[in-house]
């Protein structure tokens, strides 16, 4: 039987994973914008794949909260409004300081150093690059998310960060200064192994995001 069938199946799965990665990237770099309806036929053609693996990729993205169902079996890039953003930050404010405190003593020092170097490179770069900013942001938060020792908590924070990220995409450049100094404060506390300081630094950072968003509309 089915050597060919199995091979075909495997290729199909790979295509679906590939589509998942590419579409996710397109959303994070705003090539697909919040509220935009995804035209599957067009996107499949652009990616050079058939519609079935693309559809599977979109369903996975739905589970992850990046796209939502729209009319006629189509999908739309999720649009996160201010209210949703603030509500998700409220939950991050409960979870992330706790995660940072739990992670104390479990974080590899080399990774803290690497995160510092990324921040240095980000602020001293002659041209602002949004992807570098995302990468640095993820490196800092992932230090304690991945090391908090509670996989369920980590998964929840990551999923909340998907939501907040969809909102932040629009004005990320303005956050370069505050993000960097607040991130450095977090790294300092993690490096010192000071749970209380880590908790406080993370809380300060998330409150700063909250205030920043409110000031935008004020």
């Amino acid at each position: 039987m089915a050597v060919n069938e199995a091979a075909a199946h495997e290729t199909h799965e790979n295509l679906s994973s590939q589509a998942h990665r590419i579409v996710s990237h397109m959303i994070h770099t705003r090539r697909l914008r919040g509220g935009e309806v995804i035209v599957e036929a067009k996107l499949a053609e652009a990616l050079g794949i058939s519609r079935t693996p693309l559809r599977e990729a979109l369903q996975r993205l739905e589970g992850e909260g990046l796209v939502v169902k729209a009319a006629h079996r189509s999908f739309m890039v999720r649009n996160v409004d201010l209210a949703e953003y603030l509500q998700s930050l409220k939950l991050r404010e409960i979870l992330e300081p706790e995660a940072a405190a739990l992670a104390i003593g479990r974080i590899d020092r080399g990774r803290i150093r690497a995160a510092r170097e990324e921040i240095d490179a980000l602020v001293s770069a002659p041209v602002y690059d949004i992807e570098t900013h995302w990468r640095s942001d993820t490196s800092v938060h992932e230090l304690y998310i991945a090391a908090c020792g509670n996989a369920v908590m980590a998964q929840m924070i990551r999923s909340l960060r998907v939501t907040t990220r969809l909102f932040e995409i629009a004005q990320l450049a303005d956050r370069l200064g505050p993000d960097s100094s607040e991130h450095i404060a977090i790294l300092d506390a993690l490096e010192a192994g000071d749970a209380k300081a880590a908790r406080r630094a993370v809380q300060t950072h998330i409150r700063s995001l909250y205030r920043y968003a409110l000031d935008l509309v004020a």
Partner: peptide, 13 residues
Amino acid sequence: MASDRSITNETGK
């Protein structure tokens, strides 16, 4: 939540 809001057709249901 947003993901539950916009299911408008029978297949979706």
